[in-house]
Design a protein around this nucleic acid. Structure first.
Lengths: 229, 229
DNA sequence: TCCACGACTTGACAAATATCAAGCGATTCG
DNA sequence: CGAATCGCTTGATATTTGTCAAGTCGTGGA
């Protein structure tokens, strides 16, 4: 692990206030690894060996039951994932796979638990990080419980449009992954896009024009307490 | 607030390791209050003024959007709720109402944030509590994303049966509340019970007999990573 | 007591969503 | 290059779920 990469990780709020020696001690036994796309990093039932930090690439957290599978969330660099699991010493609770070639730093979970006990700034930042993750899942839970598939898609498009700023937005993931995020089948995602055509949604592969934001919003009824800001 | 009540709160793992003076300082400005049934304690958009501790009674956390409403979770005594919101100084993210006459201790959120910074044991316990709440919502999210309504009901009955231990189980909430927890309408809950009749589920008001656990399990496909243990 | 209301159930119907099948176009790989 | 595969779309159909309406039953007031 090179110093430049170490600095990238250190810049995360979670670690930025740690005492240097605690930070170094935590990294002992860690390793930075590159994975190709579509590799399963761990399964939900596995015991949590490592805290993961996505340095580059893209990772999907997902869950399986029966014969069904659903995306829990997508991780974009630079961000930690499975912090909660690493801190409680149990199963991961979610499976992970790379969606693209990804560089991932893996820190032994035991080191993280020690760091929490030794470094008070890290403990406080962990509290804030966990609270934020918690509210993230709460939003996702509300989203799927209180909205239809078409409404979830409409709100997703509005959020992406705001974030990307330009005229046309580009989907950051394949449509089948988007479908899984929204909790619908790929077939129904196609149909949902058709349903949104009268609301000014023009689809061109991964590029999407929103030509009538007002109408789309009246359908989507965005909510600050559900949609990411 | 009497000393006996204070001891009940102090017995929670979250507070049991706090330095006495920190615990007392945190309670300054707190008050124990009794609410009748069906009272809204706060709305999801409200700023988080208080950490709540349900000492007696029953509370429902729920969310609203469009014209729909959904139960997020039920709180049983003795337990804290909205800890995450109290720690991050933002909106509650969920609304709360009493389902029965309830005694609730309310601790100013600012005090809780101070306690986290001052008392390291409390900070560590908060980390564990938040991680546990996080995994709780993750389970609920998987449940609704990967199972049908009938499957959710079947698994709920199996969990209650195991917890209550006896021959017949008694629903701890009204059926309309159960329906909201399961993310279905009361009408469909009635139909789901009918669907489960061939699997040995006998309903008698709030009392339910499971006469064929094996068949019910083969339908429900319980999972350690979804269902509460 | 008796009435009103609420919880629950059932039926009929509509909406939302999944499944199965087919086909198209682009990419991958032997 | 050519074949195979994959992502996406569309149609037909089935399943799941919600909505509206009506009716029963029990409880809690007036």
């Amino acid at each position: 692990m090179r110093d430049s990469e170490k600095q990238i990780v250190r810049a995360l709020p979670l670690f930025s206030g740690m005492v240097e020696t605690n930070f170094e001690a935590m990294l002992a036994g860690s390793f930075l690894q590159r994975f190709p796309a579509s590799v399963v990093l761990f399964s939900e039932a596995d015991l949590t060996d490592f805290l993961h930090i996505l340095v580059d690439g893209q990772v999907e957290l997902f869950a399986s039951a029966n014969n069904r599978e659903g995306t829990m969330t997508l991780i974009k660099p630079v961000a930690t994932f499975v912090l909660a699991s690493a801190l409680v010493d149990g199963a991961y609770q979610m499976s992970a796979r790379t969606l693209a070639s990804s560089q991932i730093l893996m820190i032994p979970a035991e080191n993280v638990r020690v760091a929490m006990l030794e470094d008070s700034d890290f403990a406080h930042k962990a509290v804030l990080e966990l609270a934020s993750c918690y509210h993230g899942v709460v939003r996702a839970y509300k989203n799927i419980k209180l909205r239809t598939g078409v409404e979830r898609l409409a709100n997703y498009l509005l959020v992406q449009h705001r974030r990307q700023g330009g005229e046309t937005l580009t989907l950051p993931v394949e449509k089948r992954t988007l479908a899984s995020m929204l909790g619908i089948t790929p077939e129904n995602l196609s149909r949902a896009f058709s349903t949104l055509k009268p609301y000014g949604v023009r689809v061109n592969g991964p590029n999407i024009d929103l030509q009538n934001i007002k109408d789309l919003e009246s359908l989507a009824k965005p909510s600050e307490l559900i949609d990411p800001q």
